[in-house]
Design a protein around this nucleic acid. Sequence first.
DNA 1: CCTGTTATACCATACACAGG
DNA 2: CCTGTGTATGGTATAACAGG
Length: 349
Amino acid sequence: MLEDQTARTDGTSPRIPAQPAADSQPPSDWPTGYPDGYAVVDVETTGLARDDRIVSAAVYRLDARGEVEDHWYTPVNPQRDPGPTWIHGLTAEALADAPLFGQIADEFATRLAGRVLVAHNAVFDWSMIAREYARAEREAPVRQRLCTIALSKELSLPLPNHKLESLAAHYGVVQQRAHHALDDARVLAEAFRPSLHLAARQRVRLPLLACQPLTEWSDAVVPRRPGGGPGAGYRAYGSGYGTWRPSRKRPACPYPNPGRYEPEGRLVQGMRVAISGDTSVDRDLLEDRAIEAGLHIATSVSRLTSLLVTNDPDSPTSKVVKARSHGTPVVDEAAFTQLLQDVAPAPEG
DNA sequence: CCTGTTATACCATACACAGG
DNA sequence: CCTGTGTATGGTATAACAGG
């Protein structure tokens, strides 16, 4: 009963809530395996496409319990028009004197180093950051990310939708200036902390995803047709002749499904392959390669799926979960790429 | 046993969202 | 405007069943 707690007036001071000193909270109180620190990040960009650039960035560094250690903000000169000024408020004028990404890459890296990157719709921020680092011929020192949308879902927060605005409102965090990187990062940090504690209390496994730094970046997607080889790095699509109508409608796989992939074995033409999560190679490109090899790319996982490709076999995405329940074999992207090089022809039918 | 109809399961499709 | 994910939906393929 609650009275038991309040009735302990045995002369000692009534359990002051302050000072959650490290030793007053035994380690067992916090799930083992939770990260040591976080970098709550927000970037504003010139747009949503792969070749868009960062115009501003902010990082809140948080300790293992989500307490703010410090924060940092910088505008970034995107070396092009700033895009949706009406959203982020940064004009070409304002950015003219801002540092280039290459000039803040070190400082940024320091803020990220050894931490879990936390962002709202994290795949967006991470891919923008990873590409900027790749352009600068660097690597972002990030190994894992956590998406606060995924976390909200994991915790089943009663939100009307998963906008940052709604998450903030849920925890009573007031936005001063939405779509300003520093304020968005602050708001997210404040909203992330209670979610983190809730997750800890419920012993929820955090939805951490692996971050694979881009090692090669050419501002272009490798042309899918073997006609020109990896063109020296120009826009692959739209360069010239009728915009390439991507994959939207691919012809059906001509081979019947030979069944599941056998671990350690070879791929066989006609196998149904599903891909989940991020891939270091463009998703479309990876799918094209698979199709050229005679495989069928499935959009979902069922008992007939031969193989699931994912770099995050522990993530709770629907595909991964289904694969587990069906006992579908799972390999990572690297292994899959390897397997693609030696696909067995379809059995004679 | 064969066949036509109905029920079930599954896959592909379309759409909604999140981010600037 | 873009892209990947998750969900709702609808067509379809296979299974199940009844009747002859």
